[in-house]
Design a protein around this nucleic acid. Structure first.
Lengths: 104, 104
DNA sequence: CGTGTAAGGAATTCTGACACG
DNA sequence: CGTGTAAGGAATTCTGACACG
């Protein structure tokens, strides 16, 4: 609520060409990571993929793991684990903020 | 510096089709407002236009003015005026933050 | 002045498959 | 398993122009 700007990060508006440019990955790689359920672009009415900035960040992480030799299935597990940790961290942070400033 | 996320707003990564969808404006209108120097998309190597979220917000503002019957030349003046005011506001805000928390 | 449109071409993206390993 | 590539088609975007007013 404090930072509505965050919404930009999640908005699926970027086509695969730009994603390729920004990540340095090939179209093939980007589509393959989708096939393996590591990222979840949306589709336009006629089928072209649309990505968010968050997807781009995820792809950069994914590419790092792949280079290390991690299999996509294991990357998938890592990512869902990270997601959980992030969620917990946010809960914790909220709690601390409330403890410090008091609930409004 | 506090909010690096802001950078997403300015990154030119959105194609005209998505911009049209998000603003409700026609390609013709979007290109015309560029011709009149109200917005400044970038270009890919081979010429396709790329817009930022900020451009989209500007287009929505512009569309409002056009509907009111304001001419593009006057909209241009309005926008540069707004830009100046925004800048001054930010300077002011920075000053207040420093006054309140002290300079580090 | 601001916008619609038809025109022709160029750039973008899509899918399914074969290849290598 | 992860990625490259050639193939053919479909969707996207570009420019310059004519039209209306």
């Amino acid at each position: 609520m404090i930072r509505m700007d965050e919404s930009y990060k999640f908005k699926k508006v970027i086509s695969i060409g730009i994603v390729s440019e920004l990540t340095g990955l090939s179209y093939r790689q980007i589509r393959y990571y989708e096939e393996k359920n590591l990222i979840f672009p949306e589709r336009s009415e006629k089928g072209t993929r649309k990505y968010s900035f968050i997807d781009i960040e995820a792809l950069i992480d994914i590419a790092g793991y792949v280079e290390e030799g991690v299999r996509t299935l294991d990357i998938k597990r890592k990512l869902s684990k990270q997601k959980k940790e992030k969620k917990m961290f946010n809960e914790l942070r909220k709690g601390q903020i409330n403890a410090y400033f008091g609930l409004r």
